[in-house]
Design a protein around this nucleic acid. Structure first.
Lengths: 119, 119
DNA sequence: TTAACATATGAACACATATTCATATATAAA
DNA sequence: TTTATATATGAATATGTGTTCATATGTTAA
């Protein structure tokens, strides 16, 4: 017994609980992916960008102006949002317009907001 | 016009859009709080702890055994979760049992999970 | 072509943060 | 009291990350 339970400095107090929980939780990869997703929402610049795109598609320059940040910082953050497939873009000449690429984004945002407002 | 729009290196392309978005988005403090909340979910150790506590209340030692991490690391993360009022605890002798302190936690978790599973 | 502009991107830097180690605190058992 | 155990916590360290700067890319206008 307990072949997976030896790498912490303390004794097991409730081995049954540990085993039961281990069986019920999603597999590690899923939880890591989930943390990665929330990490993307966990930066105020990215949250502001996401929130802005709820209202309207915007070009990089507009977002920079809105947030009073330089264009490079916004581009870097947009790249992260793009890689996570949370935003999509279309090009029109020199200008690149970004918009949201996932319906779940609003849901996740609203879930969090409900928590904030409820306190 | 444009008294708030001068701190980025590029010209304004769609001043009307920027103004409209600025009026509609929540105030900055709210968005910062929201990012702080998601940041807490954005770490795999904390997500695993939260997920485990959906199943059962657990003591520190059990969580450490479950995640195969040392007790100190778990205590530090529990402190962060406690400060965010996401978990609560009860003491029973030497043992401290942690459990979830907020109904929204499950909702937020599920929202994120739905996104992960939908891809 | 040349110049101007919107955006992207690599490197550097500063700062945040997760884990570990050592140790403190608190409680129970001997 | 002494010892053992569960948990908490400060310091140190290593790693991650957001922003800036310089510059590259790509497109439009002159």
């Amino acid at each position: 017994m307990g072949e997976n339970i030896e790498s912490c400095s303390c004794n097991i107090i409730h081995e049954d609980v540990v085993r039961r929980v281990r069986k019920k939780i999603p597999r590690e990869e899923t939880l890591i992916d989930l943390a990665e997703l929330f990490k993307i929402f966990g930066d105020s610049t990215r949250i502001k960008i996401i929130c802005a795109l709820f209202v309207s598609e915007m070009c990089v320059c507009d977002i920079a102006a809105l947030l009073k940040m330089n264009q490079s910082a916004i581009s870097h953050q947009l790249r992260i949002l793009k890689q996570a497939r949370l935003v999509k873009f279309r090009k029109e000449g020199k200008v690149v317009y970004y918009s949201l690429d996932d319906n779940h984004v609003q849901q996740i945002f609203d879930c969090g907001l409900a928590h904030i407002n409820h306190k």
